[in-house]
Design a protein around this nucleic acid. Structure first.
Lengths: 343, 343
DNA sequence: TTGAAAGCGCTAACAC
DNA sequence: GTGTTAGCGCTTTCAA
């Protein structure tokens, strides 16, 4: 069985109190005792019992992350990178990360409540914020520590890191416009997600300023998977007058779109241009390499995690609402518009 | 502050013991008391304190998963799907999953030891087994519950789920052979990973039986990322006599390889054939769609999780060592060999 | 400098 | 059917 401070106390011939203090580096233990205790602890392979320690301290040193999973095939590289960012930073500060999976909705919210009330975690990281986000509403209402990746539609006062989707999308539009594209289609994501709305706004506002037409059928919704990107692109390609460029709301859908375009015998970056969002590692090695907006997901995960730990520890945040400018990475999936029309 | 059984006891006018028993559905509480207690608990929004409960029960109802992360850009869809499988199954059985990230090596092993000794988790799920796996050696040595996805080189007695890499690869070789390919290259993965060795063996053994030559330069190592798949394919393409087909040890590397081939103006499935392994969702929507070996990662995650819970609960396993036959999914990335040589 | 004792919130053996 | 009591492993007053 596991070694406890009792075992150490017995061996050293001191009380458990002394052992506890020696281990915790209190200054009221004699150096001799301290040394002896620590040595014996080492020898016996003592590791504090996590549960006991935390029952006493009334904290768990654990961060919660509830992944919004939809279907069973949940394979978005976005999340593994985000988890890596969180995990590595948490390790640095001696926190653990509890990862749950829930489909958005009632059971998801229940999981938040249950974890909060059972004191299972000290704080939450919220990912993929929704326009009106019940998770955030709840955590705010009970004043429980959390940091979100993303904003909500109403500007609320809570700590987050987000990218500036609007300006990102405006950059994408500008890039395509400069290449001569005048018919620009868009494969967007569910409007439940707040970034979808921002990105849509970015696309639409810039398109409008440039006096480009934006017929309703140029906007097709996907669900951020490669599959729906493929299908959406096929819909766009089937239009009487298909767009010469497609703005996709993430890289995965962009890959699907490229694939659909290529299946029709068209060349991406020549016949039809495609842009993505995220710049997942694959984006650099797709064919053709993908023009996309770089969002440092790993760093954002790390940052969000660090902020949360600071909040839990009651340390002041230098900045509690961070908005990052995405960077447009131009690769070969975008090129000059094939036929310049209406210039 | 959170409601405790003490609060309920006070309100109901009973002892905390009775409350505890009523809540736990013991049969020695009067129906009236039980009903009353439960109702009050409900009203007050009582949620048991996780830590206290588990200090007492000497278990954590938590499963550990330590992800072997290398660089910062850890974005393998394999893992998000695996996590989803584990997470959803764990939810079903009321377990939580603790996810850590560690680069393979000393600190990783230390994390295992630390979590075991602090009783932080009740069991571990091991992913991507190594040939001689220290994690497994350790957990076996301390007799701590775990289930692995994958085997080790020495057949050890521990519970696992694995795919039959050898026969999978033999199927891939056969498929290419039937298409007329005689020069078959291979983009493999680090031999530290046990499946790499198995897959290599599968490729080599079948190639040998078919009397096909396998020059050393036809075997290039990658690290399972798209990037290295791209680079490895370029090496193969630069050979004086490049292979007409490339067998890749996962889908991501296959995508990279396809991209490299296409960058050279060659057509995948016509000039050069490519196969993958995993069948991640993207495989169906790549261009061309990828011929690959299907490994049901989500289901494996779920299965491994379920087995672990059974072990923790001391329930008998119907089968403790499961080997799944991968299924060859033929798509357009493979086609007839361009020039039939040496037939 | 050290130890006894209380208590974190809960469960369970035992007595009534 | 219910309460008393002890105890899970640890931290932390308080007293010596």
């Amino acid at each position: 069985m596991a070694v406890t401070i009792k075992d150490i106390a017995r061996k050293v011939g001191k009380s458990i109190t002394t052992v506890s203090r020696a281990l915790a580096d209190y200054d009221d233990v004699s150096p001799a005792t301290r040394t002896r205790v620590r040595q014996v602890a080492q020898e016996m392979g003592y590791v504090p019992n996590f549960t006991a320690q935390h029952l006493q301290k009334q904290q768990s040193d654990t961060l919660g992350l509830i992944l919004p999973t939809y279907g069973p095939r949940f394979s978005d590289p976005f999340f593994s990178e985000f988890i890596a960012g969180i995990g590595n930073k948490a390790t640095l500060f001696d926190y653990d990360v509890l990862v749950l999976t829930r489909a958005p909705g009632e059971s998801e919210l229940l999981a938040y409540k249950q974890k909060v009330q059972s004191r299972r975690v000290d704080g939450f990281i919220i990912v993929r914020t929704r326009r009106d986000d019940q998770r955030i509403n709840y955590l705010r209402s009970v004043n429980f520590p959390f940091v979100a990746f993303g904003r909500t539609q109403e500007p609320l006062d809570y700590p987050y890191v987000d990218e500036d989707s609007v300006s990102g999308m405006r950059m994408a539009v500008d890039h395509l416009y400069a290449l001569g594209h005048r018919r620009i289609g868009c494969i967007y994501s569910p409007e439940l997600l707040n970034f979808s709305v921002d990105r849509l706004h970015g696309v639409r506002s810039r398109l409008g300023e440039l006096n480009l037409s934006m017929p309703a059928e140029y906007f097709v919704q996907g669900d951020l998977t490669q599959e729906t990107g493929y299908e959406a692109a096929n819909i766009l390609l089937g239009l009487p007058e298909p767009p010469s460029a497609m703005i996709c709301f993430n890289d995965l859908m962009a890959f699907g779109a490229m694939s659909a375009i290529q299946s029709k015998g068209l060349v991406v970056g020549k016949d039809i241009s495609v842009t993505g969002f995220d710049n997942i590692p694959s984006a650099e090695y797709s064919h053709p390499p993908l023009t996309t907006l770089f969002q440092p997901v790993y760093q954002i995960g790390a940052k969000v995690c660090e902020m949360l730990i600071q909040i839990i520890r009651d340390e002041p945040l230098e900045e509690s609402q961070i908005t990052l400018k995405p960077e447009l990475i131009i690769r070969e999936s975008t090129g000059p518009a094939p036929l310049l029309k209406g210039v």
